[in-house]
Simulated assay, not measured.
Amino acid sequence: MAAARFVPQALQATRGYATQAGAVKPPLMLHGLAGKYATSAFVAAASRDAKTLSQVETDLKQLKSIIAPPQQTPESVKARDFLANPVMTHAEKADGIKKMLGGKEGEITRNLFAVLADNGRLGDTEKIIDGFLELMSAHRGEIEVTVTSAAPLDKSTASRLESAIKGSQYASKGKSVKITQKVNPSIQGGLIVDFGDRSVDLSVSSRVSRLNSLLQQGI
């Protein structure tokens, strides 16, 4: 019963934020439904104050650390299965989200997930979080660089790589650089570095693919 009352209240609150946030514009345009949810959360938080914006960012980073840690865990698989489950009742969804958020989340974060649960969009949670964090990076004027490796980088290698990226011509535009590390065993070795609309593929899997292509052309 409490969960049934919570969702309409959340929807009403979200509509209220949209009205008062008319003067707030996101720093970039995100596409797709997940992008719209992320943008709505950003605008709602930014229309209040910087502290609220920071609170939502902290909430969503905490949630992402549970559902999408650098390396998959049994807990992260369970959390993702929960979010993707289409047959749960509102009460089950509300209870599960409450446990995942830990009860310390801000009002806008609670409202966001109440609306997602009500609209059957909890499966888009990771995309929405990524969209919100992308907006925050743009809001701070950061250049986001994603480094993908086959295994977690040791501290020494990660430090040298970070220094090289920050000292590169691409980073010398008066903006700070935010580096995100990802692990993808399928690349077999080497690195893939993504920044802006560019990508540098130095992975072993890419080299093997190019070699196979050359061998096939020679046959």
Results as ranks from 00 to 15, higher is better:
D95G: 05
D130W: 06
Q72F: 04
N119L: 14
L122T: 02
T58V: 07
K93G: 01
D95Q: 11
S40F: 08
L101C: 05
A117W: 02
E75Q: 15
Q62M: 03
R121H: 04
E134G: 15
K99H: 13
R121Q: 09
F42Q: 15
I66D: 08
T58Y: 02
V115H: 04
D81N: 13
T89S: 14
R48T: 09
T109N: 09
G102D: 08
T109D: 09
M88E: 08
F113R: 02
T109I: 02
G103A: 02
L83G: 14
S76N: 09
P86I: 07
F42S: 10
L53C: 08
L60D: 00
G123T: 03
F132E: 11
E92Y: 00
K61N: 15
T109H: 06
S40P: 06
N111S: 14
K51Q: 14
T109K: 07
F42W: 13
L53I: 01
V87L: 10
V77W: 02
T89V: 05
A50Q: 10
L83H: 13
P74L: 06
S76I: 07
G102H: 03
D130I: 04
R80C: 01
K51G: 10
A68G: 06
A84K: 15
F42K: 11
Q62V: 05
K127H: 09
I129T: 12
S47V: 04
R121A: 05
A46E: 15
R80L: 12
A41S: 08
K127S: 15
E105K: 06
A44N: 04
I128W: 15
F113A: 01
E57K: 15
F82Q: 09
R121W: 04
K104A: 11
G106C: 06
K93Q: 14
S54K: 13
L133F: 06
S40M: 10
K64Q: 11
G103C: 04
D130E: 13
N85F: 02
S54C: 05
T89H: 00
E75G: 02
A45Q: 10
K98S: 15
G103Q: 04
H90G: 00
K78H: 00
L112T: 02
E107V: 00
K99V: 00
N111Y: 03
R80P: 03
L135N: 15
P69V: 06
L60N: 05
E75H: 03
L112N: 09
G123M: 06
N85G: 13
T73D: 12
I128N: 11
K61T: 02
A114C: 00
P74Q: 07
V43E: 12
D49A: 10
R121S: 05
E107K: 10
A91E: 14
A117S: 11
E134T: 12
T73K: 01
K61L: 14
A68H: 12
A91V: 08
A46I: 01
E105A: 13
L63P: 08
S40C: 07
T39Y: 10
P86K: 13
G131C: 12
A79N: 04
P74D: 07
D95I: 03
A50S: 14
L83Y: 11
K51T: 08
F132A: 09
D118Q: 14
I67T: 12
R110P: 14
L116C: 09
T39D: 10
D130H: 03
R121M: 03
V56M: 14
V43L: 10
